[in-house]
């Protein structure tokens, strides 16, 4: 089936099988491998991207469902050499170790901050319910989100 999907501002028209998951479209068709697959079972959030501005687990969405929609992946967050404030905050606060969960963490938390610009620590932890990190113990991730919220709010 022919689909037209805008990813990071660029329109891609492709002929794909309906069973292709959005995450495979992004990684294999477009070669954008920043979006990771952790669990394949909708649990870990490593594959989180934005679809029409809202966070979605791209392993739990067929690419045909994204037809005509706007998708943003981690590759679309920085403008040129200027990192997104959330990326900068993860760097500053050491919000990662191996980095595998990080693209999903950044996509989930940037979508969350749009609706909740001033979250408490407890709210940030609740918002991260769907994103698992096997390295950091979350402490520095929460600190990074708090810092990013302050930066954006400032």
């Amino acid at each position: 089936m022919k689909v037209s999907i805008t990813v990071n501002g660029k329109l891609y028209v492709r002929d794909i099988e309906p069973r292709m998951l959005l995450v495979n479209f992004i990684r294999e068709e477009l070669g954008l491998t920043g979006t990771n697959v952790g669990c394949d079972t909708s649990q870990c959030g490593a594959c989180t991207v934005h679809m029409d501005g809202r966070a979605i687990k791209s392993c739990t969405c067929f690419a045909v469902q994204a037809d005509g929609r706007q998708v943003t992946t981690i590759e679309g967050m920085a403008s040129g050499d200027t990192l997104h404030p959330m990326q900068e905050a993860f760097w500053e606060k050491h919000g990662l170790q191996c980095g595998f969960c990080t693209p999903g963490m950044i996509m989930a938390t940037t979508a969350y901050l749009k609706d909740h610009p001033n979250p408490t620590e407890a709210e940030i932890r609740h918002a991260l319910d769907g994103n698992f990190c096997r390295c950091t113990g979350y402490q520095n991730i929460v600190a990074a989100v708090k810092t990013a919220a302050e930066k954006v709010g400032a």
Binding site: S42, G45, T48, R54, A55, I56, K57, T60, C61, A108, A111, Y112, A127, D129, G130, N131
Partner: peptide, 9 residues
Amino acid sequence: VGDPAVRNW
């Protein structure tokens, strides 16, 4: 229900 991404879709 679930997490924010599940609730979104």
